[in-house]
């Protein structure tokens, strides 16, 4: 279970607070969506969950399975099962996709006390999972994300997620830059990972993604706070009314 308690966050070296007291609980087995206007702090929340250094938590806590993760390095969090699918996946020239996937998968397996994958075992796994995401293994011989289209980068994120087998998946604007076919492939990939032991936090600006990844709950994040929570129908309502009312609330 993910528990976020009264989380206050600012950018290190700056005074302005971005998250102003977030309270949120996502039980295992559930998918929660976080929606909100641009600049509301959605991506900040994603980065803070993953442990990015540029942010400073000034108050509150984040617990994953009852354990605070705030003091953990990003790689320790990954080993504990936290996975962030980036809004803008980075290109790593010179590192082949397969090398990257194998290094990452074995790093977390080792920390979780599992045996490292042998080359044949790894290749078998990566082929299966790549195929279900419509990713050509040949593409993974190329440097990570270099020269990939927006859709290919997002599919590559989901493949990483499938290979690392996280228990808490945070998807930051995974729908941005995707056409409808790519969206469906990515959503199918995410849905395949839904399960009773996995919690998911899907961050999105638009309702569209939630037609494909149907959430158990929807939360509206605006001006650094959760302003409203509801069922999946809340997303449809927001699609009609927009975020204007929350801007009023904040003011």
């Amino acid at each position: 279970m993910l528990e976020i308690k009264n989380l206050h966050v600012k950018i290190a070296d700056e005074d302005a607070e971005i998250l102003k007291g977030i309270d949120l609980v996502v039980p295992r087995g559930e998918v929660h969506a976080i929606m909100g206007p641009n600049g509301s702090g959605k991506s900040t929340l994603a980065y803070v969950l993953a442990g990015r250094e540029d942010y400073e938590v000034t108050d509150g806590d984040i617990l994953w399975n009852g354990e605070s993760i705030l003091g953990m390095e990003p790689d320790e969090r990954a080993a504990k099962g936290v996975f962030l699918a980036f809004q803008y996946p980075m290109e790593i020239p010179g590192v082949a996709g397969l090398t990257f996937l194998r290094t990452a998968a074995n790093a977390v397996r080792k920390k979780r006390g599992h045996e490292e994958l042998t080359t044949p075992a790894f290749m078998k796994l990566v082929k299966e999972r790549a195929a279900s995401l419509n990713i050509d293994v040949e593409m993974l011989k190329r440097p990570v994300n270099v020269g990939f289209s927006g859709g290919e980068k997002k599919r590559s994120e989901i493949l990483q997620m499938a290979m690392l087998e996280p228990s808490l998946c945070v998807l930051d604007e995974t729908d941005s830059g995707l056409d409808i076919d790519a969206l469906r492939i990515v959503a199918d990939g995410v849905n395949a990972l839904r399960g009773p032991d996995r919690a998911m936090l899907v961050i999105t600006h638009y309702q569209r993604l939630l037609n494909h990844i149907v959430p158990d709950k929807v939360h509206v994040l605006a001006y650094g706070k959760i302003r409203r929570s509801g069922g999946k129908e809340l997303a449809l309502e927001l699609e009609k009314s927009g975020y204007a009312e929350f801007q009023k609330d904040a003011a």
Binding site: A50, G51, R52, E53, E73, P74, D75, R77, A78, A79, F83, L84, F86, P89, M90, I92, F100, T103, A104, A105, A107, V108, K111, Q160, L164
Partner: peptide, 9 residues
Amino acid sequence: FYLRARGIP
């Protein structure tokens, strides 16, 4: 950060 977020120390 990207690499570390993937579990790589």
